[in-house]
Design a protein around this nucleic acid. Structure first.
Length: 444
DNA sequence: TCTGGGGTCCTAGGACCC
DNA sequence: TCTGGGGTCCTAGGACCC
């Protein structure tokens, strides 16, 4: 049986999260900014229509914001993560086989799907066929109908608008999703399986909209005379292999309706954990740099323990601004005798790293820690000469994590400092409506 | 003045070995 | 006119994704 993938993708996810709790934002230009209120990371359609690009620095569009009275929000990741899991839970009710691909996207396996199997399960009563679709010559396929049902249920249960693309490969499902979002005629759902117009459709898809083709490859392809997804689907495989490697070859096959990617049920174990931030204001002193590194090491430790992992290697890096002359970047990598998830050890290592790479009279703009060689905690090879009381440290970390999970005033290590003048700023963050008792939605 | 954060995979080239 | 061949492992860098 042929495979059938559906890609469900939330529309303008961060903006939509803000709108769910603030309906006044509907039909208005809204943007969400990155850490430090630096760049635009999400835009409502109205903001896109004002030509605000993804990743544009906020200071460059100050006038535009004023002129069009654009609503601006700092990122509120706690809220977004919680909304994400609500959407994913709802989606999972429509297909048990689901791969959560990112915070706002999931692939579903719809192969072997039977319309009858889904009736009477409580989901169908939320489905109301789109009025315009009723008397159309082109009858909606059962898959399209199922897509609409998903879409309406998610909207009703979570408030989140999603678009759904359906196809026989993940790459084509991505394209279908893109089209479902872009053209109102599809009403948010597009099915490319058995489409008689596939060639015509691919001919209208620009290269850079294809999953796996970034800006570099698109330029290279254009130079070689390619214009559309259709062109790429007919490329010479040997030439693609030579120029773009195996990833390029897979993309071509996927465009030809030959699946190269499966649904990933058990996502492979994490390879690395990174915690890094730009500073609100640049740092010159080694003490402050150490504090920042301690905060990130501590956060990295939490992530490690969340996944029941221990790290064998830590890399610490510092950098000045990317945009100045004489940019300074340096990093130091060190191995632990025994893989660890103990915050005290991680902070000590981060501090050592900073001492190695610190340079005087530098305006540091960013630092971070990267944990590598991650191993499951229960499979850690103990070093014969290890004097640390592992069991005691494990219990301590467990207690700390438990307290921090409940409390609004988390436990912090002394090395993290109290000053935090360098700390990133969130000037316009919305409330954490769904996860913090102090920030519940107020109904007036 | 102000330019995000966190990931993955692949490849080429160097070091080293027999 | 001349250079061995072939493995493996590691690393840095490139490219991509959301």
């Amino acid at each position: 049986m042929n495979k059938i993938f559906a890609l469900a993708d939330c529309n303008n996810f961060y903006v939509s999260c803000e709108r769910v709790f603030n309906p006044k934002l509907e039909h208005r230009p809204v943007i969400v900014l990155s850490n430090n209120d630096g760049c635009v990371v999400a835009r409502s359609n109205e903001a896109k229509a004002l030509n605000i690009g993804m990743g544009v620095p906020a200071f460059e569009i100050k006038d535009l914001i004023k002129k069009h009275n654009i609503e601006v929000f700092s990122s509120n990741y706690t809220l977004y993560a919680d909304m994400s899991s609500r959407v994913m839970d709802t989606l999972a009710a429509f297909a048990p086989d689901i791969e959560i691909y990112s915070i706002d996207e999931a692939f579903l396996n719809l192969a072997g799907w039977h319309p009858q199997a889904q009736l009477g399960d409580g989901l169908s009563r939320d489905y109301h066929p789109h009025p315009d679709k009723n008397n159309q010559d082109e009858a909606a396929t059962p898959l399209t109908e199922y897509g609409h049902r998903m879409r309406q249920t998610i909207k009703k249960w979570t408030g989140m608008p999603v678009s759904i693309g359906i196809a026989e490969t993940k790459t084509l499902a991505k394209i279908a999703n893109h089209l479902a979002k872009r053209s109102a005629e599809f009403d948010g759902v597009m099915d490319l399986t058995n489409s008689p117009n596939l060639e015509q459709i691919l001919a209208a898809v620009p290269l850079e909209k294809i999953w796996g083709i970034g800006i570099r490859s698109a330029i290279k392809l254009k130079r070689a005379g390619f214009k559309s997804a259709l062109d790429l689907s007919k490329a010479n495989i040997n030439w693609i292999k030579a120029k773009f490697g195996v990833m390029g070859v897979r993309t071509v096959y996927e465009l030809q309706n030959t699946p190269c990617y499966e649904l990933e049920h058990n996502p492979p174990a994490r390879q690395s954990i990174v915690v890094s931030r730009m500073f609100g204001t640049p740092i010159e002193s080694i003490e402050q740099l150490k504090e920042a590194a301690a905060v990130y090491a501590s956060r990295a430790g939490e992530k490690l323990r969340q996944h029941n992992l221990a790290a064998g290697i830590m890399s610490v890096f510092v950098t000045t601004s990317r945009f100045i002359k004489n940019k300074y970047f340096n990093s130091h990598t060190l191995a632990f005798d025994t893989p660890t998830s103990d915050t005290t050890e991680l902070i000590r290592a981060a501090s050592t790293g900073i001492e190695r790479i610190y340079r005087e009279k530098c305006q540091f703009k960013k630092c971070g820690v990267i944990l590598l060689c991650l191993v499951p905690e229960n499979r850690v090879q103990h070093n014969l000469f290890d004097r640390t009381d592992r069991e005691k440290s494990r219990r301590l970390m467990k207690v700390v994590d438990a307290i921090n999970a409940r409390s609004g005033a988390p436990i912090r290590w002394a090395a993290e400092g109290l000053d935090r003048s360098w700390h990133v700023e969130f000037k316009r963050r919305s409330s954490r409506y769904t996860t913090d008792w102090n920030e519940l939605l107020k109904v007036k």
